[in-house]
Amino acid sequence: MADQANGPDSNGAMGGRRTTLVIHRTDFVICLIILAAALVLFYATTQFEAVADVLSQNIGPGLFPQILLVVIIALSLALPFEHLFLERGASRLDQDRSEPIRPLTLITMGLLIATVALMPLLGTVLTMAAVCIGLPTLWGERRLRVIIPFALLFPAGVTIVFSVILKVHFEPGLLGLLAD
């Protein structure tokens, strides 16, 4: 398999070792993931509720997704070999993924997931404020004279536009409890 250790160089070599073999390791893994997902979904299509031919006119609900899944499977099978047909080989494909995902990105993902999970409890306005405090702080902003006005004014502006002017229902959450 093609080596995928560190990063690509201009010759398509990964981590100093050339990609001389046919199968690109990372793309092989991606191919397996897509195949696994596609097979699970294909199985799911076989479990769709049965419909009388008169109603479905011989075009069952599973037919189109099944065709799509076959297309996806067929295309995915070519993924591990794709680098062989590209002008700059694997280096072109590996450009963006050569750097590992940084811890900050993973923490950002975690923070945003936690924020959305807490949204029903916090309510929309407090969720916005939490994002406006949490994300800048996480990304290195330390000036309170910047963070505090930002966390107050920006959610307030968004609330005026969406809730007051456009009449979008905002979940009251904790603020609603306090108001009661």
């Binding site: 945003l112 959305v116 949204m119 029903p120 929309t124 969720t127 916005m128 994002v131 406006c132 994300l135 800048p136 990304w139 290195g140 902003e141 910047v146 930002f150 920006f154 959610p155 968004v158 969406f162 456009l166 979008v168 229902h169 979940e171």
Partner: peptide, 27 residues
């Protein structure tokens, strides 16, 4: 600064996806 710009983008994304059907599921 990016550390203010992207939180703004996230807030707009949050409200934008929520606003259409007032559903946290969409978020």
């Amino acid at each position: 600064p990016k550390n203010l710009l992207w939180p703004m983008v996230f807030v707009f994304a949050l409200i934008g996806s929520y606003a259409f059907s007032s559903s946290v599921f969409d978020v």
